[in-house]
Structure formats: structure tokens, C-alpha cells
Design a protein around this nucleic acid. Structure first.
Lengths: 353, 353
DNA sequence: CGTTGGCGTGAAAGCGGTTTCTCGGGCAGC
DNA sequence: GCTGCCCGAGAAACCGCTTTCACGCCAACG
């Protein structure tokens, strides 16, 4: 008597997969219309409680739950947002994802992650394509040009920008004041007596590296009596490790690394070279990822609240999705975490050759 | 003459959002039927090339791209998979996500992440719910009971299990041989002369902690002359840090930490207590996360290829989705990475009180 | 020269829900 | 007792796309 045999034919490949029941089946079983089932399921039903009960029972018996896909199509909303990042392998994005994902989940939203693999072209395509499959975007696209981003904005909306703040764009944004963060570190080192610095640069085209460079030149012109060398490195520990020789050769007494990973890599290289941190050279990181307060020597760095940033991102995007005006933009201020990897410079001695 | 004014009414809240054009509009503009547009867009068109060209031009002019939602509903596939994990903040899952996300993207699939926040109940609900919104699941549910998982499997399929391997379940799986990994470390330490160990336990109910415990008892009964104390810790650096006193008090000469994070935390505490690693106590981690080869002392650990595991996970899930039989299950073997945090135990001395 | 066959295209029926609109029935008011 | 109104629930349109099926046209064949 099961007349379901004409179902979605080729689907019946794998015996085990039980085709989910539909609203029509529930309706038939409860002897009501699909409309009524829909209303009951969504709490919009106002009528004979006995009918509602029949529907609920039928739904339970068939183990029915509405297809999110069909609902999305009808409702025009997916209850999904996307998080587009240059590299999901990066701990800082992971921390943001963590905050974003948890707070979105609390409001019944899922999050899609899209990794643009640091490719500026991919960033644009991916953002547009991903956006179509969800209700909103949290976009971190440090490589994309201002013009490009500006042109894309109307298509991406509702969108929340990470680290692309200011009045340049007509979209809410959340940023980290990298420039100030690195000045905190530089000031800290300056206060200890350092005058000759090395900055281990991150990925050249990234806006966050740019911000640090600008922060440093502000620091330089403010103090007037410092020398800051720039050494290209990268954003991974291995990049820091590789820079060991160059750092020593520079003669600087203090190193500002692009981030904590680079700093730790550098410290490792220095240790192998017999250079003592902080006695011979002071090293500072950036981000304060969870591990670095436990490395030896405990790393001086600036802490950036990435997880709260993810949470705030959701708050704003959620408001945007609901058609409300989101809270004001925020610029997260890194906080200095002086620890053991920085100290006063060694007494001035000249080492011949 | 624009008769679009009756559009999706309330949607027109924010002026800036341009309603995406539909297949019907393209059809009208190209003076063909929607069916033809669909065929052209999907490369299934076999007819007058002039017609195809007209359609393509119309689509381009209207900046048309098919709604993924509507396609999904019609096709019965979303080209999205989900990755369900107990804690997205954990670096090991992040590494897996990285491999999974990149390889899925290469095949045109997106990935949804769902964080069960270590809650065994949530794990089940989340898995089922998330599954409905996508084509397949990569499930890492270390807390869920075997029975529960077994019951859920039919609904979850196609699904790939992480660390729930063996013939127990009718689903492909990928695992890490934690038991063997920890034995590698124990053997290494045993070879150095250690006989008294401490194992800093991870989350008690987790299967991966269980596997380590079993590995250790296998090691104990195999060697016969060792003592292994167990100290409850956790899975974060702070947990390791907190265990410093207990570890010293135990009198053990070697510590096996649940993972690298815990090991680093412990080493930090020991350093503050004036205990030298590895001279006074040897410390070993687990996982070989990127940073630990750069900490001082460089951490002895076993490396687990989490990112390749993510890649393999996609290969198998993809096969499953295509209705093919996936490759055989794999058990990833951790590889010993002897570094500087382990050495021979100190010469035997008895410290009174 | 009539029929068959194939080819190019459109009409329409889904996919699985939501929602507007309509309709029938019961009750209150006059 | 009849009209009007309101209420409960169903019919049907719709979300945007895919795909089957049918149709009309033209060529080739008997």
C-alpha cells in the first residue's frame, strides 16, 4: 500500500538513506492541508487545538522536520553567514572564527568558512560567490584594492568588514589598531633604553603589515633618535627562524616581529646561535596567541582580542540582517603585555669583526 | 515601464541592495524560455548557436547568476559539506579544517563548520540539524556514545567519521593511532633510562584521552618495570601550567602531556619553579603543532598529520557523495619527533622531605 | 507525396516549503 | 429570521531553477 515507490528514482541508490518525509506527507496523515502543517510548525496556528495536536503527532510519527533548503527558498533567508578569510590556517582568524561561530550559533545561524588562500583575485570571486549562498558576510580581505572592494560592496551587502574601516566604505567595520599596537611595543622598548630596532616585516602587500610600518614611522618621527631597520620575513614561525642571521647582523638591540609566530621562530634561531633573549637582544611579538605566555622566555607582545572581535562582528552583522542599524564601528586597541623577552639593552660595547 | 514595482515588497528596505536577476528575466530578454536559459547556463544546450549567444549576452547584460538556493532545491544537492567538531578553537581541528576546506574548495564544495562546544548532547543535535543543510558530514564526536552514534548514522549519511574507526560502524573513518603515538614517546623516554612517568591526562571522557591511557598500560605491561602516575589536567596550556606542583611532587622523571599545549604550559611552570627541562625532568607533548619546534627547549613530541587527514577526509566523503565506494579507512601513525625537552633522567639521588 | 523520425525549443511539473487569498460556516446583531 | 462579520482552514500562487515531456517543423525515406 506504500505508494511512495515512484519517489525520486535515482536517489534510492544507497538502501540505507531514508528519504526525509515532506510536509505533504504530514498533511495527508493529519488529514489537513500543507498550509496548516506549515502554520503549526511555525507557531502561527490559531485554531482548533485538536487539529494542532493531530499535526504535531503526525509530524512526530513521521519524524518530520522541514527542509531548510525549501524554507530558505520560500523565505528568502538561509540563516547562514559566511566568513571569508585569506588563510584559515592563521591562528588569529581561527580565534575570530571561534567567537563568530559561537555567537552566531546562539542566534540560530550557521557559518560558512571560505579561504581565499591569500590570493587577491580569489578574494573577490570567492566573496561574491559565497555571498549568494547565505544572508551576510564577514569579510576579511586585506589584499583587495580599495576600488575593487568599493565596487563589490553593493553585491556583498549585508557585509561587515574586518580591518578595512573608516569612512572610506559604506559598510560597518571592525578593526585592530595595529599601528598603535606596535607603537606600544616600540615605546616599551624605548623606555628600556633601546634605540636601534629591527622590524621583521609580514606579507608585504597586506594592510596589517602596512599599518605596522606606519605606526613605526610615527614612532620614529615622534622620538627622533631611533633607527629602525626593516627586514622582510613573513607571517610564519619559519620566516622568523630564517631571519636569525639577518637580525644578528643588523646590530639592533631590539626586534619587533610581525606577529607572535615570527617572534617565536626568531627566538628559536637566536637561541641556537647562542644569542640570549632578552639579555643580548630583546624580542617582541604581536597578537598574544594563547601559547606565548608559556614559552621561555615568556614573550613580550601586545594582546589583540580576536575572539571578542568575532563576537562583535556577529552582533553587527546580525543587526544588519535584521534591517537594523548596527552599533558604531569599533577599533580594538592592542594592550601591551610586557613579559620576559624584553629587557634593557646590553651595555654598549663594540665587537670587532 | 518597469513593472518590477510589485517585487518582493518588504525586501526593498535598504535601497542599496540590488535584487539579483532571475532566470525568467534573462529568458524574456533573450526571447527564449527559461528552460533554454537553464540549458545554456549548464552547457547542456545543443541547438542554434545564435540562440545560445543571445542567451549568454542577455545573462551578461543582466549580470545574471543562478540562485544557488533554487538550484540546490531542484537538484537535491547543495555542494556544501559540514565539519562538526567539539571545539573549533582547538589547533588540531583547525589544521584538519584547513586541509578539508582547501581540498573541498578545489572540487567546488563549500564547508560549514559547526562547533558542539564539547557538549555530548549538542553533538548529536547539531550533527543531525547541520546535516540537513548540506550534502555530507565530516564528524568528529569524541564524546558521543557508540549507541547514540550508531542510531544516528542512517540519518547522517553520507558521513565520514574521525577517530571512531573500526568495524563498529558502517561508515568510512579516518583515525589517529593515539595509543601507538604515546607508546613511541614512552619508548623513547624508556630508552633514555626513565622508569617513573607521569601522564597529564586530557579531558576524561574523550576517546582520544582513553586511547592514550590504553597505550600507556600496554607500554607498562610490555616493559614491566615502570611506574606511571596519572594526573588529571585538561587540554589547554593553562591546565599544564597548573599541574607544575603536582608533577614535581610526583617524583617522576618524565612527563607525557596530553598534548603540546599542555606540555608547553607545564614547561613554563617548571621553569618558574627552577626545575630544568630536560635535565631535571623530561617533558613530551603530542600533536607537533607548528610552534613547538621553536619553543625553548624545543619540544619532543609525536607529529600527527592533521592537515593531510583533512584532505583524505574530503577524498572519502567526496567519493561517498558521488555514490562511489571510498578508499579504505586509514589510521594515521604519529611519528616521534625527538627534540630537546627530553634527555636521560638525572642521576638517582634521594631528596629528603 | 504521405509518413516517419529526429531535432530544436517551449510548456509544465516538479523540488518542499510559505503565504495570500478565498471560501464556507457559525454566531451575533437588528 | 436574515444579514453581516469573523474565524478556521484549504486552494493555489510563489520562491527560482531543472528536467521531462510534448509539440511543431523539416528532412529523408518508402
Amino acid at each position: 500500500m506504500t505508494d511512495d515507490s515512484w519517489g525520486p528514482g535515482p536517489q534510492t541508490r544507497r538502501a540505507a538513506k531514508p528519504r526525509a518525509s515532506t510536509i505533504a506527507e504530514v498533511a495527508r496523515r493529519a488529514r489537513v492541508s500543507p498550509a496548516t502543517v506549515s502554520r503549526v510548525m511555525n507557531g502561527r496556528f490559531v485554531g482548533d487545538p485538536e487539529v494542532a495536536e493531530r499535526v504535531r503527532r503526525a509530524a512526530a510519527e513521521l519524524n518530520y522536520s522541514p527542509s531548510p533548503l525549501a524554507r530558505s527558498l520560500a523565505l528568502g533567508e538561509t540563516r547562514t553567514i559566511a566568513f571569508v578569510v585569506p588563510d584559515i590556517g592563521n591562528p588569529t582568524f581561527q580565534a575570530m572564527l571561534s567567537g563568530l561561530s559561537k555567537s552566531a550559533a546562539a542566534d540560530g545561524y550557521r557559518v560558512l568558512v571560505a579561504d581565499s588562500t591569500e590570493d587577491p583575485e580569489e578574494e573577490a570571486v570567492l566573496a561574491v560567490e559565497t555571498r549568494r549562498a547565505c544572508d551576510g558576510l564577514v569579510l576579511c580581505a586585506p589584499r583587495m584594492s580599495d576600488e575593487r572592494l568599493h565596487a563589490l560592496l553593493p553585491v556583498l551587502r549585508p557585509v561587515l568588514l574586518i580591518n578595512r574601516g573608516g569612512a572610506r566604505f559604506d559598510a560597518p567595520s571592525l578593526s585592530v589598531d595595529y599601528g598603535l599596537g606596535i607603537q606600544h611595543l616600540a615605546d616599551h622598548l624605548y623606555g628600556l633604553g633601546h634605540r636601534h630596532f629591527v622590524y621583521l616585516e609580514g606579507p608585504a602587500p597586506s594592510s596589517s603589515n602596512q599599518a605596522r610600518v606606519e605606526g613605526l614611522s610615527a614612532f620614529a618621527s615622534r622620538t627622533g633618535d631611533v633607527q629602525i631597520d626593516r627586514i622582510p620575513a613573513g607571517s610564519a614561525s619559519a620566516d622568523g627562524y630564517r631571519s636569525g642571521e639577518a637580525v644578528r647582523a643588523s646590530g639592533a638591540t631590539a626586534v619587533l616581529a610581525y606577529n607572535d609566530l615570527v617572534a617565536v621562530g626568531l627566538m628559536s634561531a637566536l637561541a641556537e646561535m647562542g644569542v640570549d633573549v632578552p639579555r643580548d637582544i630583546a624580542v617582541a611579538g604581536f597578537d598574544d596567541i594563547p601559547l606565548v605566555r608559556y614559552v621561555t622566555p615568556r614573550l613580550t607582545t601586545v594582546s589583540v582580542p580576536y575572539e571578542p572581535l568575532g563576537t562583535e562582528a556577529w552582533k553587527r552583522l546580525h543587526a544588519l540582517i535584521k534591517g537594523e542599524t548596527p552599533s558604531h564601528d569599533l577599533v580594538f586597541q592592542p594592550r601591551l603585555q610586557p613579559r620576559d623577552s624584553t629587557a634593557a639593552p646590553p651595555v654598549r660595547v663594540t665587537i670587532e669583526d
